[in-house]
């Protein structure tokens, strides 16, 4: 019998190819026209030989190495984080429509981060910086609130979704109020609400990377527990799972991931919902496969969306949240339609 939980080779290869193309596109496209061959030559030189006899100007080199490359990596990490968090939430809530955005955890993270910034609190905790810790607490509180409200009204998909939307709306309102009171410019609020990738250099990448690696590893390891949770909780216990522990760990890690992603990107909608579904439709429903593939496809999706945002109307830019929602919202409707009766 073949190994049923190994990620299918074909799917893995295709996913990495897509991510590779996304990387190439994001390095080659942008507001500045730089000949692609020269870029290749430069990349080759800087990675494999120490020679710097490139035909690119200093500015062009900086654009590639300090703007396009980190922005690709940041987009990939944010996309992977949101997708993995989304699959985690879907597993824990046994609900295909759970996602960081719809559950209110993204909004909670935003509010937490803003509160810390506005009040200038110092609440750093263990390895977490103040802003990340605030965002993490906010995300956690939001998810738990949504879960409690929904369980008091019947634990159905609809009730979870509605309570998530209510929590998100409430928290976003608090957030907008706080930002307005503190004279943050309208553009900043708007940019935050719609989601954007802000980078200059590798700073943001370095913030998000350790959290991503940590949380991804944990959630990946709990993939088997999430598979058990697809049974009833009692069955999962009888089979040797620890559903309560799994729920706590996965919700915490997914919240942390969301929190850190949101603290650099604002509210990017639908990635966490759409990507796990695409993976599920394409390769199967085991979380041990969904989680790693969601990470790769999520990374490719968001970084491609960003490349599009940067180059479609160059030298102007589109906010990336507009693109993800533009693709995500119809997809969301499609899922609702396809799963008629089952959720």
């Amino acid at each position: 019998m073949e190994d049923i939980f190994r990620i299918p080779r074909l799917a893995l290869t295709v996913s990495f190819l897509i991510l590779g193309f996304a990387a190439l596109a994001s390095i080659c496209l942008g507001a500045t026209k730089i000949p692609i061959l020269n870029i290749f030559e430069f990349m080759w030189d800087s990675f494999f030989t120490s020679g710097v006899n490139s035909s690119l100007s200093e500015i062009e080199k900086t654009i590639i190495m300090e703007w396009r490359l980190p922005r690709f990596v940041l987009g990939a990490l944010v996309g992977a984080s949101l997708s993995v968090a989304g699959s985690g939430f879907q597993g824990v809530f046994r609900n295909p429509l759970a996602d960081p955005f719809l559950l209110g955890s993204a909004a909670g993270a935003g509010l937490g981060a803003t509160l810390v910034i506005v009040t200038d609190l110092n609440v750093s905790f263990l390895f977490l910086g103040s802003v990340q810790f605030g965002a993490f607490l906010g995300a956690l509180v939001a998810v738990i609130a949504a879960a409690i409200i929904s369980s008091s009204s019947g634990r159905t998909t609809a009730s979870l979704l509605l309570s998530g939307v209510a929590v998100a709306a409430f928290l976003t309102a608090c957030q907008t109020y706080l930002m307005q009171r503190n004279f943050v410019s309208i553009q900043e609020i708007y940019g935050w609400l719609i989601g954007r990738l802000l980078t200059s250099g590798w700073g943001e990448v370095l913030i998000i990377l350790p959290y991503f690696v940590f949380c991804f590893s944990i959630i990946f390891m709990y993939g088997r527990e999430l598979d058990l949770l697809r049974m009833s909780e009692d069955e999962s216990k009888a089979l040797g799972g620890s559903p309560l522990q799994a729920k706590i760990v996965v919700i915490s890690c997914a919240s942390l991931m969301t929190a850190v992603a949101v603290s650099v990107s604002g509210l990017i909608a639908f990635v966490g919902l759409v990507i796990p579904h695409v993976v599920r439709l394409a390769v199967g429903a085991s979380y041990r496969i969904i989680i790693p593939l969601s990470a790769i496809i999520g990374a490719a999706f968001l970084s491609s969306a960003d490349t599009f945002a940067r180059s479609a109307v160059a030298p102007a830019e589109l906010p990336i949240g507009v693109i993800t929602a533009f693709i995500g919202a119809p997809f969301f409707v499609l899922i609702l339609k396809l799963s008629k009766g089952t959720i």
């Binding site: 019998m1 049923i4 939980f5 069955e235 429903a285």
Partner: peptide, 22 residues
């Protein structure tokens, strides 16, 4: 031990082999 509830869970997208492997 094995516990079989009144309403059996039939998770969407799970194959029999995966089910037994649990």
């Amino acid at each position: 031990f094995s516990y079989v509830p009144q309403n059996l869970s039939q998770p969407a997208g799970m194959t029999l082999c995966e089910y037994v492997m649990l």
